[in-house]
Structures are given as C-alpha cells and as structure tokens.
Measured scan of single mutants.
Amino acid sequence: NKFNKELQWATWEILNLPNLNEEQVKAFIDSLKDDPSQSANLLAEAKKLNDAQA
C-alpha cells in the first residue's frame, strides 16, 4: 500500500543521512513506525536537522 512504500522510502532516506547521530535516527524511525502517515513530514524534519548539523 501507499503508506508502506512511503514508510520504506523515508526509513531508507533517514538511515542514510550522514549528520544524524544514532539516537536521532532511532527517534525518527520510531516516530515513523508510530505514525506512517507522517512519513513525508518526518523525512523533511530529519533532512532539516541533518542540514543544520552539517
């Protein structure tokens, strides 16, 4: 289903952001699991944090 694909993509993207630490990655992944419908928003937040920590 649509959410599953978005969830998988967002998870992969977050796991490959170079500037997030392990705790941050885990928090984002946990949030994705809690509410897959928010995957696009969570991914945007993760990318923002990644850029801020570059």
Rank of each mutant, 00 (worst) to 15 (best):
Q53W: 05
A40N: 07
I29A: 03
L17S: 02
K48D: 06
L15D: 05
K26T: 10
V25R: 14
L49W: 04
Q53L: 08
K5E: 15
Q8N: 04
L7Y: 05
F3W: 04
N16G: 11
E6P: 03
E13P: 03
P36Q: 03
L20F: 01
N16I: 06
K33W: 15
Q8T: 06
L42F: 06
A54V: 09
L43A: 06
N50V: 01
D34T: 11
N4E: 15
L32P: 00
S31G: 10
K5T: 10
E22L: 09
V25W: 03
V25Q: 13
K26I: 12
N4P: 14
L49N: 02
S37V: 06
A52S: 11
E6M: 14
A46Q: 00
P18T: 12
N50T: 01
A10R: 03
Q38F: 05
N16W: 04
A27D: 08
N4Q: 14
Q8W: 13
D51I: 07
D30Y: 06
P36W: 06
D30N: 12
Q24G: 00
L7G: 03
D30G: 12
K48Y: 07
L17R: 00
A10L: 10
E45G: 04
L17A: 02
D34K: 09
S39E: 05
P36Y: 04
E13N: 06
Q53R: 06
K26V: 07
D35S: 06
A54P: 06
K5R: 04
N19P: 00
D30M: 09
Q38T: 04
A27Q: 09
L15S: 11
S37Y: 05
L43N: 01
K2S: 15
I29F: 04
P18Y: 06
P18G: 07
A44F: 08
A40K: 14
E23A: 14
D51V: 09
K2T: 04
T11Y: 07
L7M: 11
F28K: 01
L42P: 01
F28V: 03
F3I: 15
K5N: 15
A46Y: 03
Q24D: 03
I14N: 01
N21A: 08
S39Y: 15
F3N: 15
A27P: 02
D51W: 11
L43V: 15
L49V: 13
D34N: 13
A52W: 10
N41S: 11
A46I: 02
K5L: 02
K33I: 15
K48M: 13
L17W: 02
E23D: 09
L43P: 01
L20N: 00
A54M: 10
P18M: 09
Q53T: 05
E22F: 11
E13Y: 13
E6R: 03
D35N: 13
K33H: 13
A46P: 00
L15N: 10
N50Y: 01
N50L: 01
N1I: 04
P36A: 05
I29L: 12
A54F: 07
E22M: 12
K2D: 15
N4Y: 14
Q38H: 07
D35Q: 09
A27V: 11
K47E: 04
D51Y: 08
S31R: 13
L20E: 00
A52I: 12
N1Y: 00
L49G: 01
T11P: 02
S37L: 07
W12F: 11
N16E: 05
A46L: 02
N1V: 04
S39A: 13
D51Q: 09
S31P: 01
L20T: 00
K33F: 15
L42G: 01
N19H: 13
A54H: 08
W12Y: 10
N19D: 05
L15R: 06
K48S: 12
P36R: 02
P18F: 06
N41A: 13
Q8S: 06
F28N: 00
I14S: 01
E6D: 10
W12Q: 15
D51E: 14
L42M: 09
L7V: 10
N50A: 04
L7R: 01
Q8R: 07
K48H: 08
T11A: 05
A40G: 10
K48G: 09
W9H: 13
A54R: 10
E6G: 04
N21W: 10
D30V: 08
S39M: 15
A44R: 06
L7F: 06
A52L: 14
N19W: 12
D51M: 11
K2Q: 15
Q8F: 09
I14H: 01
N41Q: 11
T11S: 06
A52P: 02
A27H: 12
K26D: 06
L17Q: 03
N50W: 01
F3M: 15
K33V: 12
W12M: 14
S31I: 06
D35H: 08
A10M: 08
K5I: 04
A10V: 14
I29S: 02
L20G: 00
K26W: 10
L43E: 01
N1P: 15
L17F: 06
A52N: 11
E45Y: 08
Q24K: 01
Q38W: 03
N4G: 14
N16K: 07
A27L: 12
K5D: 15
L20D: 00
D51A: 12
P36M: 07
N21F: 08
Q53S: 05
S39W: 15
I29Y: 03
Q8P: 02
I29R: 02
E6Q: 05
E22W: 13
T11V: 10
A10Q: 03
S37K: 07
Q38S: 14
S31Q: 13
N41M: 12
E13T: 09
Q38N: 12
E13V: 12
L42Q: 03
W9F: 13
I14Q: 01
D51S: 07
K47R: 13
E22Q: 14
S37D: 06
L17M: 14
N19I: 01
A27S: 11
K5V: 06
E22D: 14
A44D: 08
L17K: 01
N41W: 14
L15V: 06
K47S: 06
L42H: 04
A10Y: 07
L49E: 03
I14T: 01
E22V: 11
E23V: 13
A54E: 10
A54N: 10
A10W: 04
A52F: 09
K48Q: 07
S39R: 05
N21S: 14
K47H: 10
K5G: 13
L43T: 04
N4I: 14
S37I: 05
L43D: 00
D35G: 03
D51F: 11
S37F: 07
E6A: 06
W12G: 14
Q53G: 06
E22Y: 12
E45W: 05
N41K: 13
K5Y: 04
N19G: 06
A44V: 11
L17V: 00
L15F: 05
N50D: 05
K5A: 09
W9Y: 14
W9A: 11
L20R: 00
V25L: 05
K48V: 09
N21G: 08
Q53D: 02
N41I: 12
D51K: 09
A40H: 09
A40P: 07
L20P: 00
L32F: 03
N16R: 07
L32W: 02
A10P: 03
K2M: 14
W9Q: 13
L49H: 03
N19T: 04
L7S: 03
A52G: 05
A44K: 08
W12I: 14
D30A: 14
N50S: 11
N1S: 04
A27N: 10
P36F: 10
